[in-house]
Lab assay of single mutants.
Amino acid sequence: GHYRIRINGREFEIRGISEEEIRHLEEALRNGADEKILKEIVDRLRG
């Protein structure tokens, strides 16, 4: 998958993330885990 997200007015492209991972992120966001989720995304993109 290849997705664009906007955070604090800046747009980011996220590549190589699966539909299942996105559902997991959405679930966590609904549970209020904003900073933790951003850290997970950044860590994943770093490799």
Rank of each mutant, 00 (worst) to 15 (best):
G1Q: 05
G1V: 05
G1E: 07
G1M: 06
G1A: 04
G1D: 10
G1T: 04
G1I: 06
G1Y: 10
H2D: 14
H2L: 05
H2K: 05
H2W: 15
H2P: 06
H2R: 09
H2F: 14
H2S: 15
H2N: 13
H2V: 12
H2Y: 15
H2Q: 05
Y3K: 01
Y3S: 01
Y3E: 01
Y3L: 12
Y3D: 01
Y3M: 10
Y3R: 02
Y3F: 15
Y3C: 04
R4Q: 05
R4Y: 09
R4L: 14
R4E: 02
R4C: 11
I5C: 14
I5M: 02
I5V: 11
I5P: 00
I5N: 01
I5S: 00
I5W: 02
I5L: 04
R6D: 02
R6P: 01
R6Q: 09
R6K: 10
R6V: 15
R6C: 15
R6N: 08
R6G: 01
R6E: 06
R6W: 15
R6T: 14
I7E: 00
I7H: 02
I7Q: 00
I7Y: 04
I7F: 09
I7T: 01
N8I: 01
N8T: 01
N8R: 03
N8D: 05
N8E: 04
N8K: 03
N8W: 08
N8H: 05
G9V: 01
G9D: 03
G9S: 02
G9I: 01
G9C: 04
G9N: 04
G9L: 01
G9H: 01
G9M: 01
G9R: 01
G9F: 01
R10W: 11
R10Y: 13
R10M: 15
R10P: 00
R10D: 05
R10T: 11
R10F: 13
R10Q: 14
R10L: 12
R10N: 06
E11A: 03
E11C: 14
E11Q: 04
E11K: 02
E11I: 15
E11T: 10
E11L: 13
E11M: 11
E11F: 09
E11D: 07
F12A: 00
F12D: 00
F12M: 03
F12N: 00
F12Y: 15
F12L: 03
F12E: 01
F12S: 00
F12Q: 01
E13Q: 05
E13T: 08
E13R: 03
E13Y: 15
E13G: 01
E13M: 09
E13I: 15
E13S: 03
E13D: 05
E13F: 14
I14W: 02
I14L: 14
I14H: 00
I14K: 00
I14M: 05
I14E: 00
I14Q: 00
I14A: 01
I14Y: 02
I14V: 05
R15E: 04
R15W: 14
R15C: 09
R15P: 07
R15K: 09
G16H: 12
G16R: 04
G16V: 08
G16M: 06
G16E: 05
G16Y: 09
G16P: 03
I17M: 06
I17P: 02
I17R: 02
I17Q: 02
I17F: 04
I17L: 07
I17N: 02
I17E: 01
I17Y: 02
S18K: 06
S18I: 02
S18N: 06
S18V: 03
S18M: 04
S18L: 04
S18R: 04
S18C: 04
S18T: 13
S18Y: 03
S18E: 03
S18D: 04
E19W: 11
E19M: 12
E19F: 12
E19T: 11
E19S: 10
E19N: 09
E19V: 12
E19Q: 12
E19K: 10
E20F: 10
E20W: 13
E20D: 08
E20G: 08
E20C: 07
E21R: 03
E21I: 05
E21S: 08
E21Y: 05
E21L: 05
E21P: 01
E21F: 07
E21C: 12
I22K: 06
I22Q: 04
I22V: 07
I22E: 03
I22P: 00
I22R: 04
I22L: 07
I22Y: 07
I22N: 01
I22A: 06
R23Q: 13
R23N: 09
R23F: 12
R23E: 09
R23Y: 12
R23M: 13
R23L: 10
R23S: 09
R23H: 09
R23C: 05
R23T: 08
R23G: 10
H24Q: 14
H24N: 11
H24C: 12
H24E: 14
H24S: 12
H24M: 14
H24R: 11
H24I: 14
H24Y: 13
H24F: 15
H24A: 09
L25A: 01
L25Q: 00
L25H: 00
L25K: 00
L25C: 02
L25M: 04
L25R: 00
L25Y: 03
E26D: 07
E26R: 06
E26N: 06
E26P: 00
E26M: 12
E26F: 10
E26I: 09
E26K: 06
E26T: 07
E26W: 11
E27V: 07
E27I: 09
E27Q: 10
E27M: 14
E27F: 11
E27H: 13
E27K: 09
E27P: 01
E27S: 12
E27R: 10
E27W: 13
A28L: 15
A28K: 07
A28I: 13
A28G: 04
A28N: 05
A28M: 15
A28V: 13
A28R: 07
L29V: 14
L29F: 07
L29C: 04
L29A: 04
L29D: 01
L29N: 02
L29P: 00
R30I: 09
R30D: 06
R30F: 10
R30T: 08
R30G: 07
R30L: 10
R30V: 08
R30C: 08
R30N: 09
R30E: 07
R30K: 10
N31Q: 08
N31R: 09
N31C: 11
N31M: 12
N31V: 08
N31S: 12
G32N: 08
G32L: 06
G32C: 10
G32K: 05
G32D: 05
G32I: 07
G32Y: 08
G32T: 04
G32W: 07
G32Q: 06
G32E: 04
G32F: 07
G32A: 06
A33E: 08
A33Y: 07
A33N: 06
A33W: 12
A33D: 09
A33S: 07
A33C: 09
A33H: 07
D34E: 10
D34Q: 05
D34K: 05
D34P: 13
D34T: 14
D34N: 11
D34C: 06
D34G: 12
D34V: 15
E35C: 11
E35W: 15
E35N: 06
E35V: 10
E35A: 12
E35S: 11
E35D: 12
E35R: 04
E35L: 12
E35Q: 06
E35T: 08
E35Y: 14
K36W: 10
K36Q: 11
K36V: 10
K36F: 12
K36P: 04
K36H: 13
K36E: 10
K36D: 10
K36N: 11
K36L: 12
K36C: 08
K36A: 12
I37H: 07
I37Y: 12
I37M: 10
I37G: 05
I37S: 08
I37L: 11
I37K: 09
I37C: 05
I37D: 06
L38T: 02
L38V: 08
L38Q: 01
L38E: 01
L38H: 01
L38R: 02
L38Y: 04
L38M: 08
K39F: 15
K39W: 15
K39R: 14
K39Q: 15
K39E: 13
K39H: 11
K39T: 12
K39D: 05
K39L: 15
K39S: 09
E40F: 14
E40K: 08
E40P: 03
E40T: 10
E40H: 08
E40Y: 10
E40V: 10
E40S: 13
E40A: 14
E40M: 14
I41A: 03
I41K: 02
I41W: 13
I41R: 02
I41G: 01
I41V: 06
I41M: 14
I41E: 02
I41N: 01
I41Y: 07
I41H: 03
I41D: 00
I41T: 04
I41F: 11
V42M: 09
V42Y: 09
V42I: 14
V42A: 04
V42H: 04
V42G: 03
V42D: 02
V42W: 13
D43R: 14
D43G: 07
D43Q: 10
D43H: 14
D43A: 12
D43E: 10
D43P: 03
D43S: 09
D43N: 12
D43V: 08
D43W: 02
R44H: 07
R44G: 08
R44C: 09
R44A: 10
R44S: 08
R44M: 09
R44Y: 12
L45W: 12
L45E: 02
L45I: 13
L45D: 02
L45A: 04
L45F: 13
L45R: 03
L45G: 03
L45M: 10
L45H: 06
L45V: 06
R46I: 15
R46K: 13
R46Y: 09
R46Q: 15
R46W: 14
R46C: 11
R46P: 05
R46F: 15
R46E: 09
R46A: 14
R46S: 14
G47T: 08
G47C: 14
G47N: 11
G47E: 12
G47M: 12
G47R: 10
G47Y: 06
G47S: 10
G47P: 11
G47Q: 11
G47A: 13
G47F: 08
G47K: 10
G47D: 09
